[in-house]
């Protein structure tokens, strides 16, 4: 099913919650989103950055995967 704004909000809450004690992590995530919107980075570029940022947080990576277009997926190591 197509994801809705509520799904995005709930995912963003999850990210904020996870990094409650490290607000700079969420800021960095926002920077990645800004660069994507301004087309400084493309989809593979976003994947690369998010993969590094959320390294060690498989639940956040799996959540992020749901927003990726078909054919893209970040592998999660558990």
């Amino acid at each position: 099913r197509p994801l809705k704004v509520e799904d995005a909000l709930s995912y963003l809450d999850q990210v904020k919650l996870q990094f409650g004690s490290q607000p700079q992590m969420y800021s960095e995530f926002l920077d990645i989103m800004k660069e994507f919107k301004s087309q400084c980075i493309d989809t593979p570029g976003v994947i690369n950055r998010v993969c590094q940022l959320f390294n060690g947080h498989p639940d956040l990576i799996m959540g992020f995967n749901t927003f990726l277009p078909p054919g893209y997926k970040i592998d999660v190591q558990i």
Binding site: L3, L30, T43
Partner: peptide, 19 residues
């Protein structure tokens, strides 16, 4: 753009930050 749901996530992230 080829990644509409990712664009949606970016839009929501950036607009919710402004408000």
């Amino acid at each position: 753009m080829a990644a509409p749901q990712l664009v949606m996530l970016a839009n929501v992230a950036l607009t919710s930050e402004v408000s």
